[in-house]
Nucleic acid binder design. Structure first.
Length: 340
DNA sequence: AAGTTCCTCAACCGCAAAGAC
DNA sequence: CGTCTTTGCGGTTGAGGAACT
């Protein structure tokens, strides 16, 4: 039978939008709101595909769009987010107010991808995104509307219950789900950190699957958006503690050269942003936000390659009044993981 | 000044998830 | 529960302009 085209293409205009078309579209959406893209062009009197209208609105006409060049801060943010999320432009765009996924994607392809080689180097915090909340989704597809709404209203738990009701979760999966609810991020440790997990699998597909959090196992899928928000909140929190750690894990000797923490998918959830933060407790999470400045973007040539944190460049902020114990706990946890 | 190459970015395309029926 | 429709996503294309020869 085949799939019906998104719109009747005969007689529809393609190519650049004219000012008049922009005005018509803008006026219509102002009156009727977004949505119903399929019927919109007909109702608005536009000879355009609904998809085209949607794209034009999202990428160009929306009022909250930021115009002008990408700032250095934004660029830095894109690099870091890309290192974490891969080519999930919509997620990246979600953390750059006023920027669209298309804009960021274009900017990356034209400006940053070529510089990606410059990011090479360094060792090695290898985070398996399949264990990160929100990492468990393949490319494409849209986020659940229900989840989007729930995320807005802070109703993630309800959504998960709904998923349970659908019978999606087997007992073990439900257990894992529960665990995930308790953890902001899940990072696991490999038996050896000389083998980055993301490259353990061979082939582009697998690398991509790994980077996007899709594993070969049919594990439960997490909500990509809401959980990624959690994840990125953890990564991009307001406070930026820095870890200062020696290579042998024995202390805080920043002069001892770079060290590494390698984490992969082979073992279960847990890790610096999950377990450690949890260990520290809610209040202490404030000082456990990862310093993305210390996230070494030298994640090798492939965007799907594992993340690298050079935590020799990080140091833990110990607030006045002393959180020495917390500092030590963090480092201790990091190296526990590192040496598992 | 003309021709060619390179770069940028708006727009298109196909796929897949989610929801509706 | 299966099928169809709608929507969102990421990859890709190509027009237009800038830079270079």
């Amino acid at each position: 039978m085949g799939r019906a085209p998104c719109c009747e293409k005969v007689g529809l205009k393609k190519g650049r939008w004219t000012k008049e078309e922009d005005e018509i579209l803008g006026r219509y959406i102002k009156e009727h709101g977004e949505g119903s893209w399929r019927s919109l062009p007909k109702n608005a009197g536009l000879l355009r595909c609904g998809k085209s209208c949607r794209l034009r609105w999202i990428n160009y006409l929306r009022a909250d769009l930021k115009r002008g060049n990408i700032s250095e801060e934004e660029e830095e943010m894109i690099i870091k987010l890309h290192a974490t999320l891969g080519n999930r432009w919509s997620l990246i765009a979600g953390h750059l107010p006023g920027r669209t996924d298309n804009e960021i994607k274009n900017y990356w392809n034209s400006h940053l991808s070529r510089r990606a080689a410059d990011f090479r180097d360094g060792v090695v915090v290898n985070v398996d995104l399949s264990k990160l909340p929100g990492g468990g989704k393949r490319r494409g597809g849209r986020a659940s509307r229900g989840i989007m709404a729930a995320a807005k209203a802070g109703k993630e738990k309800k959504v998960k219950e709904k998923e349970k009701d659908k019978g999606k979760n087997k007992a073990a999966e439900a257990e894992q789900q529960l665990k995930l609810e308790e953890e902001d991020m899940a990072v696991s440790t490999p038996s050896s950190h000389s083998q980055p997990c993301a490259t353990d699998k061979s082939g582009e597909e697998q690398a991509q699957a790994s980077a996007s959090g899709v594993t070969s196992d049919d594990g439960p899928e997490e909500d990509p958006l809401a959980l990624s928000e959690e994840m990125m909140s953890a990564l991009l929190g307001p406070v930026s503690p820095k870890l200062e750690v020696g290579p042998d894990g024995s202390g805080m000797d920043s002069d001892s050269g770079p060290s590494s923490l390698v984490v992969d998918s082979e073992s279960g959830p847990g890790g610096p942003t999950g377990d450690v933060a949890q260990e520290l407790g809610e209040n202490d999470k404030a000082i456990m936000d990862w310093d993305l400045m210390a996230l070494d973007i030298s994640t090798a040539g492939d965007m799907w390659d594992p993340l690298v944190w050079d935590y020799a460049d990080m140091d833990i902020v110990v607030p006045d009044g002393g959180h020495q114990q917390q500092q030590e706990d963090v480092v201790s946890d990091l190296f526990f993981l590192d040496n598992m």
